[in-house]
Design a protein around this nucleic acid. Structure first.
Length: 585
RNA sequence: GGUCUGGUAGUUCAGAUGGUUAGAAUGCCGGCCUGUCACGCCGGAGGUCGCGGGUUCAAGUCCCGUCCAGACCGCCA
């Protein structure tokens, strides 16, 4: 046995016990006559003491220790004369009488401390060292706790966790697939699942009316701070349910997580907002409703007055920044630069300062009269002291830019406190999205999403207007989850494929097994999938999901630690019957 | 595919306008120190300024290319 206790558990009540600890040397403080060592493991830090004069041999040994040496020590627990209130074991220390170096350690490239001096790249390259740091360990512990609470909650609700294949069939819709060549079937490929979507629907046909799985999904698309090529979903599906049943079940799960993990009780039902309203008032399908600052459409009152920019605009939108009329020229220039960045894409920014004395100072004084500004301000509910920020242009683009501006103002005004949570359901998503490049409709959610009953007739006349039984859970401007009521009727599913431009043969080839399954008494069903990494990151209060993944990949999809992906041998390629176009690196 | 930011000591960074021997903090090494816990004090070592090319009497600094990292747009049903 290497240890009798961990480095986090000894207290005053353990004084005089003889104990053996094993751990990493966090820090050595040699005061000359005596030496203190901070010994660290996953559970905490315990201070060791050596009296250099009483035990010369031991003090020589201690002199040899370096950071992150792994040692085993035996000694007696003693009360400290100088207690350290900052750590749980701060009342005691171990007067050691023997020390055994289990493993020496090279000097780590960065300090293993809460506030490390290491940059992101180094930390990822030596992730196994980074994992020794408290913040990283705590993030993974949080992740574990959340997974556990999800399983507890869903198990209590009769959900059953069932594994689905990781090697599956490539499907044409949606994200790019990661593919895996099949040696036994030359020239053919598996795909890694973008989600277990089809399998969970087949589980419903199979009679497992409440399924869930905490499962890895794979999408070969470009990455972001909140997107990894492999990520984890809480994947759920229920039979004999309507949208309302799914929402209430998973609203309860969300509240359970808030309560058990963050200690937050969310009163009342989550707000619901239609996709149309989300776009109209926030310019995005994932509004951050921790603060208001809704868009006001002033197109009808601001155009036609001889200001070309407004007169030519399809849409003119304003937000009211409370108590910002005092913004300096410099601050307004910064905001203008912000909206003109290519990523935001606005042509310019119009401001209206509603001064405390009721007068106006604006960037368009020569085109409008004070009475005009008053009308705009009234429309926006602005009071003296407030600032209107106005963008104009093509509708879609302007809404999107205004959304970015709104979030920027939220940040500037400190309205986006990461310890405040504002969840909501966004509902009534469009079923289909038109794509100009390929001149066809695509499923906005996925091709198995059911249209609203009252909109089915529109599938023929105006497919773009059809609303879906689809919903997203949004928290603080993050899409945390989304789902839909599925089609369970093979005729409707065939119709859907037709609208998506699949020939009968293609639909049969890609999804025949599913439509076939629907012929054998498929129950009405629907479900939802949550982005587990994003949820953990949200609860951890960190920006990047990399912080809550033990071994994440970088923004080019590379594992900096082991340098995956890498080339494979000619033998492997030959065995798979694969010839490379160019040899790569 | 694109836009932007960064790359200088082990690490995190500073190095206006091109100009003597490239600095700080921290870490590391050595010495001193019996109550430290971000220990303290004294001393020391440590640099291919990402890489390649160019401009110049002279480049860490300017230009071009390239590699790496990060953020974002496109993309992600």
């Amino acid at each position: 046995m290497y240890r009798t206790h961990t480095c986090g558990e000894l207290r005053l009540s353990d004084v005089n016990k003889t104990v053996t600890l094993a751990g990493w040397v966090q820090h050595v403080r040699n005061l000359g006559g005596m030496t203190f060592i901070d010994l660290r493991d996953r559970y905490g830090i315990t201070q060791l003491v050596v009296n250099n004069e009483e035990d010369n041999e031991l003090s020589q040994q201690v002199k040899e220790l370096g950071r992150e040496y792994l040692v085993q020590v035996t000694g007696k627990v003693a009360e400290r004369s100088n207690k350290n209130k900052k750590i749980a074991t701060g009342d005691i220390e171990i007067i050691i009488h023997s020390l055994n170096v289990l493993n020496s350690a090279d000097l780590p490239p960065f300090t293993i401390e809460d506030d490390t001096d290491g940059g992101e790249e180094l930390r990822m390259k030596y992730r196994y060292l980074d994992l020794r740091r408290n913040p990283v360990r705590k993030a993974l512990e949080l992740r574990h706790k959340m997974a556990l609470e999800v399983r507890k909650f869903l198990n209590d609700q009769n959900f059953i966790e069932i594994e689905t294949p990781v090697l599956m069939k490539s499907t044409p819709e949606g994200a790019r697939d990661f593919v895996v060549p099949s040696r036994m079937n030359p020239g053919q490929f598996y795909a890694l699942p973008q989600s277990p979507q089809v399998f969970k629907q087949l589980l419903m046909v199979g009679g497992f009316d409440r399924y869930f799985q905490i499962v890895k999904c794979f999408r070969d698309e470009d990455l972001r701070a909140d997107r990894q090529p492999e990520f984890t979903q809480i994947d759920c599906e229920m039979s004999f349910v309507e949208q309302e049943d799914v929402l209430s079940t998973f609203e309860a799960m969300t509240k359970h997580l808030f309560k058990t993990i963050r200690g937050v009780t969310i009163e009342g039902d989550f707000p619901r907002m239609s996709y149309a309203d989300a776009m109209k008032y926030y310019g995005t399908d994932k509004p951050d409703i921790r603060f208001d600052m809704r868009f006001v459409d002033i197109t009808s009152i601001a155009s036609g007055k001889g200001f070309r920019v407004f007169d030519d605009a399809e849409y003119i939108g304003a937000i009211c920044a409370p108590q910002c009329a005092g913004y300096s020229r410099k601050e307004l220039d910064q905001l203008t630069d912000f909206v003109k960045r290519p990523q935001v894409g606005a042509k310019g920014l119009v401001y209206v300062k509603y001064n405390d004395d009721g007068s106006f100072k604006t960037s368009v004084d020569k085109f409008f009269a004070p009475e005009d500004f008053k009308v705009w301000c009234d429309e926006c509910g602005a009071k003296p002291g407030d600032l209107l920020l106005i963008l104009a242009g093509e509708r879609r683009q302007t809404l999107s830019a205004l959304s970015e501006l709104r979030l920027e103002m939220g940040n500037r005004l400190g309205l986006r406190d990461k310890n405040r949570f504002a969840p909501l359901w966004v509902v009534d998503f469009p079923l289909l999205e038109w794509d100009d490049d390929t001149q066809r409709f695509y499923a906005m959610h996925h091709p198995f999403t059911s249209p609203k009953e009252e909109d089915i007739a529109l599938l023929d006349s105006d497919p773009g207007a059809v609303r879906a039984n689809a919903y997203d859970l949004v928290i603080n401007g993050n899409e945390i989850g989304g789902g839909s009521i599925r089609i369970h009727d093979d005729l409707l599913q065939q119709k859907m494929f037709k609208v998506l431009g699949f020939s009968k043969e293609e639909a049969e080839k890609q999804f025949g097994f599913l439509m076939n399954a629907f012929k054998y008494g498929a129950p009405p069903h629907g479900g939802v999938a949550f982005g587990f990494d994003r949820w953990v990151a949200l609860f951890a209060g960190v920006e990047s999901i990399r912080e809550v993944i033990a071994f994440p990949k970088n923004n080019a999809g590379r594992d900096i630690m082991n340098d995956a992906p890498s080339s494979i041998s000619q033998e492997q390629l030959d065995e798979l019957g694969i010839a490379l176009k160019d040899s790569g690196k």
